[in-house]
Design a protein around this nucleic acid. Structure first.
Length: 288
DNA sequence: GAGCCGTGGCA
DNA sequence: TTGCCAAGGCT
């Protein structure tokens, strides 16, 4: 296995983007909030929302003291609004189970609502400096190409953690930078379409490049069409609630212009089932 | 493990 | 216009 860490770390020190969560002393709560927002949402859209969020709720207890509806409203159009609800629940759990301090232990982090393998380790590594493999979609693509000589990674699996562990330096601080560097390379150089191998710091040891960029197929899961989907209908309903005075709309008026009434009703029911909406006395509202 | 869950930018 | 892609997680 060629040494990927040395050139990646050196490259990262020179080329890392200046992002809010990379500022010294950003804090574990800020890191946690940023990681929730970054789950499937691009960096450029997250940055302004993150700063507004932390200004309003500087600690987990501050968020926990507010209503879930406020979290969902503040989430605005970041997408996947269940994350706002889960972040609020996590804040309550941090207040009640951890004295208001974001836990450092990976298992404790994994036990929080909305935190999985990626986010738990990202917090432990980037906020606390501990040594764990942090594997996101960028890292999976970098490892698939550099190590496995594949054009695209396989779907996410637990073995991805072992694959990253295998290329991680021993020292905690180096391992943390390596984790960030692999993600950064995947986000800015080793991108999904049209990778920029001419500026890649590990192109001389990339297995995919050495093999002549073979087309190894693509096992990635396809996203369902969004236009006309239930997800779009849910988005329309929730947008109406966010924009309404007191986050409350008469049930008969919610997304009344939606072309498919059955689909609209299905969306309302599923939002209620998810805890993102509540129905009472003929009105639909955000969760209190 | 597969399907589901928002939103917007870009080719 | 359509499909791809984005610091995932839950059921």
């Amino acid at each position: 296995m060629p040494d990927l860490a040395t050139p990646l770390i050196a490259w990262y020190r020179e080329n890392a983007r200046d992002l809010p969560w990379r500022r010294p002393g950003f804090g574990a709560w800020g890191t946690l909030v940023s990681e929730f927002m970054l789950q499937q949402t691009p960096v450029s859209r997250v940055v302004p929302h993150l700063e507004a969020w932390l200004e309003r709720w500087p600690t987990p207890s501050a968020l926990a003291a507010d209503a879930p509806a406020e979290a969902v409203r503040q989430w605005a159009n970041l997408g996947y609004p269940r994350r706002a609800l889960w972040l609020h629940r996590a804040a309550v759990e941090i207040r009640d189970r951890h004295g208001g301090v974001v836990p450092r232990d990976v298992d404790a982090l994994l036990a929080l609502t909305g935190i999985g393998d990626y986010t738990a380790r990202a917090v432990a590594v980037f906020a606390y400096g501990d040594r764990h493999p942090v594997v996101d979609t960028n890292t999976r693509r970098v490892l698939a190409r550099a190590v496995e000589a594949r054009a695209q990674p396989a779907p996410p699996a637990r073995r991805d953690l072992a694959a990253m562990e295998a290329v991680l330096p021993e020292a905690d601080a180096d391992a943390a930078v390596m984790n960030a560097a692999a993600m950064e390379l995947g986000a800015t150089v080793c991108v999904a379409r049209s990778p920029r191998c001419d500026v890649c710091p590990i192109s001389d040891r990339c297995a995919w490049r050495a093999a002549g960029y073979p087309d190894t197929g693509d096992n990635r899961r396809r996203q369902a069409r969004y236009e006309g989907s239930d997800r779009q209908a849910r988005g329309a309903v929730l947008r109406a609630l966010r924009d309404a005075p007191a986050h409350r709309v008469a049930l008969t008026d919610v997304a009344a212009d939606w072309p498919d009434a059955l689909q609209r009703d299905r969306a309302i029911d599923s939002l209620i089932a998810d805890g993102l909406a509540e129905a009472s006395e003929g009105y639909l509202s955000l969760p209190t």
